[in-house]
């Protein structure tokens, strides 16, 4: 196969295009393409929320598709994530969790549009989000139990002496592992999904190329295979839309679980 021999070069070019490149300035101080698309997602989110706020205040009953759709999503976060997990204190944590959900959702959805990049497709953004979540639940743990009480609550009471220290070490370790796993999960899902989509797009174009150079039987057969790659690309694209929503949900849900863990009574 002639087409497949070109794949490694195209793949390295694809992976290189997914690394952070500076649009303005350089990569230490400046704007990479991921941060640019994150800004686009934030502007889009603001526009959607402001239009929703204006339209919602027009009448008491939600009117039309747009207002109902946004209300459905907000109620989903409220009922499914906040009320379901946090119980009585959901009102305190709802703003933070809803902000996380909408920010990640819009970043992921912007990344789905061909030609755009997801803001969450770079490690920096997801690490910052996970750090926000980490600081948030440690802060609420300290606020509820006091700093000493929170540190003491990491080690379970009622366990015999030598095991006690071992369990405490494991608990501290797992607490610091939480933001890392949150960040890596979101980043890997977005990055790997887009790499897979890009690979199928490259394969489709490579297999279609012979037909453009001249109509022969083998070129037509190769173009037939290219249709199969396009079909696979469409399937992966639909899966990616699903993954964009699920990953926003998973991130919010896990943040809610961590908050619930520090808030629960011993």
């Amino acid at each position: 196969m002639d087409a497949l021999s070109k794949l490694p070069d195209e793949m390295s070019e694809l992976i290189d295009s997914f690394m952070a490149h500076a649009v303005i300035g350089d990569t230490t101080v400046g704007l990479t393409q991921y941060i640019f698309w994150m800004g686009v997602a934030i502007v889009l989110l603001l526009v959607v929320l402001l239009v929703f706020k204006k339209k919602q205040s027009e009448s008491l009953v939600p009117q039309g598709f747009f207002v109902n759709a946004v209300e459905y999503v907000v109620e989903f976060v409220r009922d499914d994530v906040c009320k379901g997990l946090l119980g009585d204190t959901w009102r305190v944590h709802f703003p933070f969790l809803a902000a996380l959900f909408f920010f990640i959702l819009f970043n992921n959805l912007v990344g789905i549009i061909p030609g755009c990049h997801p803001g969450t497709g770079t490690m920096g953004v997801t690490a910052a989000l996970a750090l926000c979540s980490f600081v948030y639940f440690v802060f609420y743990g300290c606020k509820r139990k006091g700093v000493g009480g929170y540190v003491k609550s990491l080690a379970p009471s009622g366990v015999a002496f030598p095991i006690n220290i071992l369990v405490a070490i494991i608990e501290v370790f797992s607490t610091f592992l939480r933001p890392i796993t949150l960040a890596i999960r979101l980043f890997c899902n977005m990055f790997a999904g887009h790499i897979v989509m890009g690979t199928f797009a490259i394969l489709a174009s490579l297999f279609f190329e012979p037909l453009l150079q001249g109509v022969t039987a083998s070129a037509a057969a190769s173009a037939g295979v290219s249709v199969f790659w396009v079909l696979l690309l469409i399937i992966i694209y639909l899966v990616e839309i699903l993954v964009a929503v699920i990953q926003a949900y998973v991130f919010t849900l896990l943040s809610a679980v961590y908050v619930q863990l520090v808030e629960q009574e011993e």
């Binding site: 992976i15 999960r185 980043f187 899902n189 790997a192 998973v250």
Partner: peptide, 20 residues
């Protein structure tokens, strides 16, 4: 089920990204 598979899938994707 979708949620659980998302958790499991993340592990496979980490491998994928590390390889790349």
């Amino acid at each position: 089920f979708i949620l659980a598979s998302a958790f499991v899938e993340a592990l496979a994707l980490i491998g994928f990204v590390v390889v790349l």
